[in-house]
Amino acid sequence: MPFATTDDAVRAWVRGWALSRGAAEPAVEPWGFTVDVGLPLPREVARHVLPAADETTVRKITENTAAPGVWLKTFVPPETLQAWLAPGWALAGGPGFLMSVPLDGPAAAPGSLARGYRLTGWTRGGVTRAVVRAADGSFAARAQVAVTGRSAVVDQVETHPAHRRRGIGRVLLRTLADTAARAGSTAAVLAATPDGRALYESAGWRVLAPLTGATRVAPDGGA
């Protein structure tokens, strides 16, 4: 396991995610972290992350948070979190997984893209972004990695439907893992959707815990 405990992986993910998204530095709470994200409704205003969620804590937080746009992130299955939520809250974002992989050092080569594709990348403020374009210059895929010392967070992995099953995602993952390893990271972590899980597992990532979100429902019924 690249992290000593799942809790260590969660802490690394929170720090790296905040850096990757340009959010505020995570504020430490007795039960975990609060991150000011700062996006307007209907997107995410802030999030609470509970590394070790329990019914009492979840109930207390959701009973005392009335503002829409606040999210809760936990590492329990959806059915468990659903039963703990106070009225006015709902599961959101779909089921997910916290995954990790060891970084054993810079690879000899990240692999090559299929003919016609071109990868470009840039680094700014501790975040490296990589974009793949097709031969006509159109968007094919993207991903980014935030390096926070000995750990790194891979984020915003997306492949256009028309360009899937061509090995682009694996090349992006290897490229970003190599970037993080060269910067001194020894392990990486990410949040995966069910669709993305297969790609990550094929690249050597393993599931550490379920990842389930919920948000306060707006008065009009939207999140």
Score class of each variant (00 low, 15 high):
residue 112 S to T: 15
residue 43 R to I: 00
residue 98 L to W: 05
residue 113 L to S: 03
residue 125 G to M: 08
residue 85 L to T: 11
residue 45 V to I: 11
residue 63 E to R: 15
residue 51 P to M: 10
residue 68 P to H: 04
residue 139 F to E: 00
residue 53 A to K: 07
residue 110 P to Y: 02
residue 93 G to N: 03
residue 149 G to N: 10
residue 80 T to M: 05
residue 114 A to I: 05
residue 111 G to D: 04
residue 107 A to V: 13
residue 117 Y to L: 03
residue 69 G to F: 09
residue 129 R to W: 06
residue 71 W to G: 05
residue 105 G to A: 08
residue 112 S to A: 15
residue 80 T to A: 14
residue 41 L to K: 01
residue 44 E to M: 15
residue 43 R to H: 13
residue 135 A to L: 06
residue 111 G to W: 04
residue 88 G to S: 05
residue 71 W to E: 14
residue 138 S to N: 10
residue 39 L to M: 11
residue 116 G to I: 07
residue 88 G to H: 06
residue 107 A to P: 02
residue 124 R to F: 01
residue 134 A to V: 04
residue 134 A to C: 06
residue 92 A to Y: 13
residue 47 R to A: 11
residue 69 G to Q: 09
residue 139 F to T: 00
residue 138 S to E: 13
residue 105 G to F: 04
residue 72 L to W: 04
residue 75 F to L: 05
residue 56 T to D: 14
residue 113 L to T: 03
residue 92 A to P: 03
residue 70 V to P: 03
residue 56 T to K: 13
residue 118 R to N: 04
residue 50 L to W: 05
residue 56 T to C: 06
residue 70 V to D: 02
residue 88 G to Q: 06
residue 101 V to I: 14
residue 82 Q to V: 01
residue 52 A to K: 10
residue 142 R to V: 09
residue 65 T to A: 07
residue 89 W to E: 08
residue 113 L to P: 07
residue 122 W to P: 00
residue 47 R to S: 13
residue 111 G to C: 04
residue 115 R to V: 10
residue 70 V to G: 02
residue 73 K to L: 11
residue 143 A to R: 01
residue 40 P to E: 13
residue 138 S to H: 12
residue 126 G to A: 06
residue 106 P to Y: 06
residue 44 E to P: 00
residue 38 G to R: 03
residue 98 L to D: 08
residue 39 L to E: 15
residue 59 R to Q: 10
residue 82 Q to W: 05
residue 99 M to E: 11
residue 133 R to H: 12
residue 74 T to C: 14
residue 112 S to K: 13
residue 80 T to H: 05
residue 50 L to V: 14
residue 147 V to T: 11
residue 43 R to E: 13
residue 104 D to Y: 09
residue 147 V to K: 04
residue 117 Y to I: 01
residue 138 S to R: 14
residue 149 G to V: 10
residue 124 R to N: 09
residue 49 V to P: 02
residue 98 L to R: 07
residue 64 N to G: 14
residue 110 P to I: 01
residue 116 G to D: 06
residue 144 Q to H: 08
residue 57 T to C: 09
residue 75 F to K: 03
residue 63 E to M: 11
residue 106 P to K: 08
residue 65 T to C: 10
residue 139 F to W: 12
residue 48 H to Q: 09
residue 121 G to I: 00
residue 112 S to M: 07
residue 64 N to W: 01
residue 87 P to T: 03
residue 47 R to D: 08
residue 119 L to R: 11
residue 86 A to G: 09
residue 92 A to D: 15
residue 42 P to T: 08
residue 93 G to T: 01
residue 94 G to M: 09
residue 87 P to I: 06
